[in-house]
Design a protein around this nucleic acid. Structure first.
Length: 212
DNA sequence: GCAGTTGGCGACTTGTTCAG
DNA sequence: CTGAACAAGTCGCCAACTGC
């Protein structure tokens, strides 16, 4: 799993790699210089505070860092004794849409999968998909990488992938879950509401992370 | 003087709850 | 189901401090 300490350590490592302090990195990304201050990484009552995905996206864009290399930093690869990073299956979204790339439970199978390191693989089964084309705009752009967890519970508002029994998989936003069906909305310029009977769904998976 | 950091505070967004 | 009220969380602004 991603941990609070690992994510903040990766931000520190990214700043250091670019010859910046955390505050300098925030400034370069157009954020407030105090955004990544150590004093703001833990709330007053001791609860860990996390950077938003928007902030992470901005510093990745500002530094030209990709998701794969940032994910590698999460495990502080500079450490000599660092253990081997967990790897997750990686493929193009269009490839897995058109080919038989999953088993009936939504786990990757077949030969088209490569691997990338991603720390969230510590305790759960996940895979990575690279977006191609612009049919998922404005949410996801070409080249974005999404991390998907087939075993993760889904709830209202989640971005999810649905593999219908009789159709190709696709990305949706979950609107409502009832005992009979999943009500979802397509992603794109003209969102449409669709209902899937549970019996017509082979598997679902939740998008837990995206590099944008 | 400048850059970096800390801590307080408020604005803003998002999620949750609940009444109608 | 909808909308209002509330809670939670993140970020930006600010003043003060430290080190070079």
């Amino acid at each position: 799993m991603l941990s609070h300490e690992k994510v903040w350590a990766a931000i520190d490592a990214l700043a250091s790699h670019n010859g910046l302090s955390p505050s300098g990195l925030a400034r370069r990304a157009g954020l407030d210089p105090t955004t990544f201050n150590r004093s703001k990484r833990v709330a007053g009552d001791g609860r860990p505070r996390w950077p938003s995905t928007e902030s992470l996206a901005k510093i990745l864009e500002a530094t030209g860092e990709g998701l794969k290399s940032f994910a590698a930093r999460v495990e502080t690869p500079d450490r000599v004794t660092s253990p081997a990073l967990p790897k997750v299956p990686f493929a193009g979204l269009s490839d897995v849409t058109e080919q038989a790339a999953f088993d009936p439970t939504g786990q990757p199978q077949g030969t088209l999968w490569e691997t990338v390191t991603f720390p969230a693989a510590d305790n759960q089964s996940v895979f990575a998909l690279q977006v191609s084309g612009d049919n998922l705009l404005p949410l996801y752009r070409q080249g974005d990488v999404i991390i998907v967890a087939p075993s993760s519970a889904v709830s209202r508002g989640d971005r999810i992938i649905i593999k219908p029994s009789e159709d190709h998989l696709a990305v949706y936003t979950l609107l409502q879950r009832t005992p009979e069906r999943l009500n979802v909305q397509t992603i794109g310029d003209k969102p449409e509401k669709i209902a899937f009977e549970h019996s017509a769904i082979e598997w679902t998976a939740r998008i837990i992370w995206a590099s944008q």
